[in-house]
């Protein structure tokens, strides 16, 4: 649903011409009709963006940190691996798309999307585009149309796509399926951060940030994290930041750039992208399945019968789509 409609060809043309209104409309299609979104996105060339996932417990400072990253990027911090060939031209500013996800209420379906508040000073900048999503009940702290949305940003030619997950601790592994690099943000405010790490965040981190470094207890957290890494088999860079003042954020950006360069050259990037395609396909089938189950929900049909009808319906749909 949206106020002024744009035709499909207008959207295609608009995205190619870097018209942000076209991107805005495209993202609405991603949310409301992801199947159509995939058809449109197939027709667009996509830039090789660095997709960065930012995850961590509620209130650790994810949104504030993204704001600080945007601040620094605007001051010219960070290499532009993609547009080295564009060097010397006037517009060497990095283009960044930001996807922020907040939870939907399981009861009313409503959502309060507040991550943007921390980034509003960048709302009018030409090279940035921030978009809020409700998770609409999707598992894993992301939106059901996250793959389509990410593709749309890449089709728009973003150098980086930054995704902030819902602030939940455990089992938020979905982000590893879509992001090239996962940043796990920790804060000394949260007493049980080490517990959280044991519960699974440790495995998914490509980079750790200990935010709120202005809190002296961040040093304790740092040494604990280091200790965990020695006993585990993982060696991950740890950055200390103060997202409010921007301290340490330059170093974080440098680490992110280094990592991008590294995964481009060692093959991890292509591997990640292959996996992302698989997970994207899986998410499409899961969505179809969810819709069908919704349809059957109140039927009172028997389990065996439901299973049979689900498969029949899926086959019928596949036939109809010709795919």
């Amino acid at each position: 649903m949206s106020n002024t409609q744009m035709r499909e060809d207008e959207i295609l043309e608009g995205i190619r011409a870097h018209d942000r209104r076209a991107l805005a409309k495209m993202l609405s299609i991603c949310e409301n009709d992801p199947n159509l979104a995939n058809v449109i996105l197939d027709k667009l060339e996509k830039k090789r963006s660095h997709v960065i996932g930012i995850t961590g417990s509620p209130g650790v400072g994810k949104s504030t940190l993204i704001n600080a990253i945007l601040d620094k990027m605007n001051q010219g911090v960070g290499e532009n691996v993609n547009s080295i060939k564009d060097m010397g031209t006037a517009t060497n500013k990095k283009k960044i798309g930001v996807i922020v996800v907040d939870p939907s209420s399981p009861f009313t379906g409503g959502a309060l999307l507040g991550d943007r508040v921390r980034m509003q000073s960048h709302a009018t900048e030409e090279n940035f585009f921030i978009r809020s999503f409700a998770n609409r009940g999707a598992l894993g702290g992301l939106s059901p149309s996250i793959y389509e949305a990410c593709d749309a940003f890449e089709a728009f030619g973003m150098d980086n796509v930054i995704i902030e997950t819902v602030g939940v601790g455990q089992s938020e592994v979905e982000i590893t399926n879509i992001a090239d690099t996962v940043v796990v943000v920790l804060s000394p405010d949260n007493g049980d951060e080490v517990q959280m790490l044991k519960a699974g965040l440790m495995e998914i981190a490509d980079l750790f940030v200990i935010n709120k470094a202005d809190n002296p207890r961040s040093q304790i957290l740092l040494s604990r994290l280091r200790k965990m890494m020695i006993t585990g088999d993982k060696d991950v860079v740890i950055c200390l930041t103060n997202a409010v003042t921007g301290e340490g954020v330059e170093k974080l950006i440098k680490e992110l750039d280094d990592r991008f360069f590294q995964i481009l050259s060692n093959g991890v990037f292509s591997l990640k992208r292959k996996k992302r395609l698989l997970h994207h396909a899986q998410s499409i089938v899961r969505r179809e399945l969810d819709e069908l189950i919704q349809k059957f929900e109140n039927d009172g049909t028997e389990l065996k019968e439901i299973k049979k009808r689900l498969l029949e319906e899926l086959c019928r749909k596949a036939h109809k789509n010709g795919s």
Binding site: T108, G110, L113, R116, A123, S132
Partner: peptide, 14 residues
């Protein structure tokens, strides 16, 4: 909050 509770997705910008 009231609009959220009525089932809408509400963007608040501060």
């Amino acid at each position: 909050r009231a609009l959220r509770d009525a089932g809408m997705e509400v963007i608040y910008t501060g």
